[in-house]
């Protein structure tokens, strides 16, 4: 009466699972040999790593005063960079939104450009901009502007695509042109989302901007690189602590504001 359903041979020995597992282990082994993983060396030299951590555990508190200005500059860079990126992103996100631009050709081209911009990592942009505009915080501002442009335009056009169509149709029915529809029907609906995404991108940019200086793009990263080159790990520790404090403060402020907005 109560028969237990029979499983086929392949199911019984979990053939699929075994094949996937085998492939996966092979892949791990192959990548390990490709990257030159050497566990013996790792464990033999591990005391060097702990010695380094030990040096960092005794920070040079007198260095704190010197760090304050560059870390503030990092925040300033992030603020300007995010703002420029956002301003450029707004027209692009309108053009990439499905419900505003009905022409699929324009939309595809704009989205293709946005996808290209988003593939470039931040430090790579920093290296390019340092080569173009020279060493200094301006290179950092450009890097962050391009970096946040890619990110924010995607968030923005996705926000625009979720809006209520009613006000748009109402304006069109009264004879409003395209730009009037955007200004009076689209922007009021997405304004809070825009501010929230702006703050979110700003948070990410503050984190990113702390290392840009490593390649000469201004801010705290310059000091980070200097301390690491001088093997002054007690100073490195202060810089990392300063970054941590600033990131936590910015995150808290931005999170509270975003919670209130949405």
């Amino acid at each position: 009466m109560n028969e237990v359903p029979k499983r086929s041979f392949v199911q019984r020995i979990h053939l699929k699972l075994i094949i996937w597992l085998g492939l996966f282990i092979g892949l791990v082994y192959w990548t390990a040999s490709l990257t030159g993983v050497n566990l013996v060396m790792f464990f033999e030299n591990f005391d060097q790593f702990t010695a380094l951590l030990d040096k960092m555990a005794r920070p040079d508190w007198s260095y704190t005063q010197l760090v304050i200005n560059p870390i503030l500059q990092t925040v300033q860079m992030a603020l300007i960079g995010t703002t420029i990126g956002t301003l450029i992103a707004i027209p692009f996100s309108v053009l990439a939104a499905r419900n505003i631009v009905k022409n699929p050709f324009i939309r595809t081209i704009i989205r293709f450009i946005l996808n290209l911009v988003r593939t470039l990592p931040d430090l790579m942009l920093a290296a390019l901009f340092v080569a173009i505009v020279g060493i200094g915080p301006i290179a950092g501002v450009f890097t962050l502007a391009v970096f946040s442009f890619g990110m924010i335009s995607k968030l923005f056009y996705e926000a625009i695509e979720t809006i209520d169509e009613g006000p748009l149709e109402a304006l069109q029915a009264t004879g409003a042109n395209r730009s009037q529809v955007v200004i009076f029907a689209v922007i009021p609906q997405v304004f809070n989302y825009f501010i929230s995404y702006f703050l979110y991108t700003f948070e990410i940019n503050v984190r990113a901007s702390t290392v840009l200086g490593y390649l000469g793009a201004g801010g705290i990263g310059v000091y980070l690189q200097r301390s690491l080159n001088e093997f002054a790990y007690d100073k490195t520790a202060i810089i990392i602590l300063a970054i941590l404090v600033v990131v936590l403060i910015i995150d808290t402020i931005s999170n509270t504001m975003r919670e209130r907005l949405l």
């Binding site: 050497n38 060396m41 790792f42 380094l52 430090l123 984190r207 290392v211 490593y214 990392i240």
Partner: peptide, 19 residues
């Protein structure tokens, strides 16, 4: 929050430069 490139530099000290 610990920057990834600082971690990389610390590990380079331990296992030498390389992937």
């Amino acid at each position: 929050t610990f920057p990834e490139i600082v971690l990389a530099i610390m590990f380079i000290k331990a296992v030498g430069p390389g992937s």
